Amino acid sequence: MFEGEWPEATPAGRYGLVVDPFEPITLVKVVIRSFGYLHGVPRDVAIVPTQLVIDVRELFRDPHMRPEFRELTGRDDVIRANVLDQPGAIEFIRAQAAAIATLVPGMSARQPNPLVVNVAVGCAGGRHRSVVIAEALAVLLHQQGIGSDVRHLDIRRPVVQR
């Protein structure tokens, strides 16, 4: 379902990464931010009106628990596979993408100018699960003709020692 569709990314700020956007087809753009709760809720999530916050800390096994995965991120194929192969992961991501898609018509009906639907995906450190899920959501939204930007706010932070 996700083979060959992962976009490129560029560094943003000290700790962030911006994934190259999928071309928007709708009047409403979705901005998906991944972050780690252990770094605190980012200003981008706390201040910007966010229509959907997805907390995956307790939903899926944390790749960080495997020492060989700690320095990797959700941009690495082995981490993507680790997260997406967990029971219920694909169904969960599809359901969240469907929920996001339902926000788009309502937002575009409210105002004539292009609008933004803000979505935040948080895991513990912001390097593994939230990254994979944020990018998978963008892929599914793109398949539905909904443009999105993905911003990984904590992906380049040092690994959290727990």
Rank of each mutant, 00 (worst) to 15 (best):
S130K: 07
P24R: 02
V31Y: 02
G40K: 00
V41P: 03
V41L: 10
R75Q: 05
Y15I: 07
T10E: 15
D154E: 11
T102Y: 03
R70W: 07
Q144H: 11
L137T: 05
I133D: 01
I54Q: 02
V116D: 03
V119P: 01
Q96V: 05
V83I: 10
V78K: 07
D154T: 10
P112V: 15
I100T: 01
L84I: 09
R33Q: 04
P42A: 02
A46G: 13
G145H: 09
A9D: 13
V83F: 02
A98M: 12
R80I: 05
I90Y: 08
L141S: 08
S108Y: 06
I79H: 03
F69D: 04
I90N: 05
G74V: 02
R75K: 13
D44K: 11
V150C: 03
R129M: 11
K29W: 10
A95G: 14
D55I: 06
G36L: 00
P87L: 01
H152K: 06
R66I: 14
I133E: 01
W6A: 01
D44A: 15
Q86D: 04
G106Y: 10
Q111K: 12
V28H: 06
E23R: 12
A95R: 14
V18N: 07
T10I: 13
G40P: 04
G126V: 06
A134E: 03
P24E: 04
V83Q: 01
G74I: 00
V132Q: 00
I100Q: 00
R151D: 14
A12K: 12
P114I: 04
A109F: 04
T50C: 15
I47V: 15
P42R: 03
G13V: 02
V131T: 07
V28E: 09
R70M: 04
V116C: 02
Q86H: 05
D154A: 09
